[in-house]
Design a protein around this nucleic acid. Structure first.
Lengths: 220, 220
DNA sequence: GTCAATATTAATTTAATGTTAACCACAATT
DNA sequence: AATTGTGGTTAACATTAAATTAATATTGAC
């Protein structure tokens, strides 16, 4: 798990430092945040592989932070692990509903926590370096580079391509695409196709492959 | 997570039944075991995707069961989730060391447990055990790899081959195949043959063997 | 050798996706 | 304010891959 990035969010200075110290010692690149707004901002900036998120924060609660992040395609596959003092069920369930990958009840047993983080990080697919297609993505600029040439593409196209590229070769089901790119707004079936078509127009018809009856995949 | 296989191991009849009922309702294919020996035997037979394993069993403890399974290549990537009444750290750490993917402390909150199982099952990109035939299956990609070459195959063919490969060497009766792959939709007898043929065309005629009057088997 | 089961092949049907153009909302430009 | 441009969605229709069936040949158990 060396070299992976972790973001730790907790308003208690002591805990924050203790965790940061331990994970840093394990070779992770640690960033920190003490409240929800800061957490989202830092997450955008550092793109961590995993986020430890305290449920109770001074400004907004961790659940909301998690939900906010999960809406962005970039954080679709980021691991999020809740830390909480509350033992109540509803909180845990709410956490999982918000898209958590795990839930740890305080007081934190550092060994167990590190184990969980390790297990989770090990499982995550490696983000795949430069792709064979010569296509790479620039999240800050909403742009795509293809063999060095940079193209700015519309938001929806960008989100769709980001999603597909997040796990090259994985087949994303239409349903999954709808959820991740369009969320709650309901759109017709053909809308996805049209966006796929536009992407193929721009980057070649080989980069996205159709799996009939299932969905689409990016050919890393 | 529909269609995935779960093995539940617990010596308490009530808990076993309760869990089986709930997971069955969610569309998982459930098998059960009440002790360690039975657990290993059933695991071999059904090749579950995930195992819920009580730490305390009448014959051997769950940790040993887990270690035993993890030694076999077939279970290298099977998810194993411990259930335990003990709250002590050492037990949890021992669990993780034995190769557990998660650890739940009783009393079981069914909602939380189901969430964990769901998250785990969703995330796993089964790297697929290499078989003797050199054929392996990539569920995420809807593809089959044969000696390193990857082929995307149509949905029905994929489902059929997945089924046969789920328990190599087991003869699947036509009736069973109909149920698992086609569910409620009724199709003629020849349809199965045709799909088998297409698979043989793609991967060689040796990989699937006919057992006349009964069904087909994958030659793991 | 007979007969039922399966293999094979091609033809057909079905369902999913591709394509195009039109439309609307909204932002940018003059 | 009117005009133009851009992005997003939809609808109608075309196209294609996949699934199924149907017809015929072959196989293997008895």
């Amino acid at each position: 798990m060396e070299g992976k990035k972790i973001l730790i969010v907790d308003d208690e200075e002591d805990i924050l430092e203790m965790l940061a110290y331990n994970f840093n010692k394990e070779g992770l690149r640690v960033s920190k945040a003490a409240n929800g707004a800061e957490a989202i901002e830092t997450a955008e900036k550092t793109r961590p592989d995993i986020i430890l998120l305290d449920v109770m924060l001074p400004d907004m609660d961790g659940i909301s932070v998690c939900e906010t992040l999960r809406k962005k395609p970039a954080f679709k596959n980021t691991l999020i692990l809740f830390l909480s003092a509350r033992g109540e069920d509803y909180s845990q369930v709410a956490g999982y509903n918000a898209g958590a990958d795990d839930y740890i009840v305080k007081p934190i047993r550092i060994k167990i926590l590190m184990h969980k983080v390790k297990v989770l990080l090990d499982r995550v697919a490696v983000p795949a370096a430069e792709s064979l297609t010569g296509i790479s993505i620039n999240p800050e600029r909403f742009s795509i580079s293809m063999n060095g040439k940079e193209t700015i593409i519309p938001k929806k196209e960008f989100e769709l391509l980001s999603l597909l590229m997040s796990v090259p070769h994985k087949v994303f089901r239409r349903e999954e695409i709808l959820n991740d790119v369009w969320g709650d707004t309901y759109i017709g079936d053909r809308t996805i196709d049209v966006h796929i078509r536009k992407l193929r127009e721009k980057f070649g018809s080989d980069v996205i492959q159709t799996v009939k009856g299932v969905g689409y995949k990016f050919m890393g």
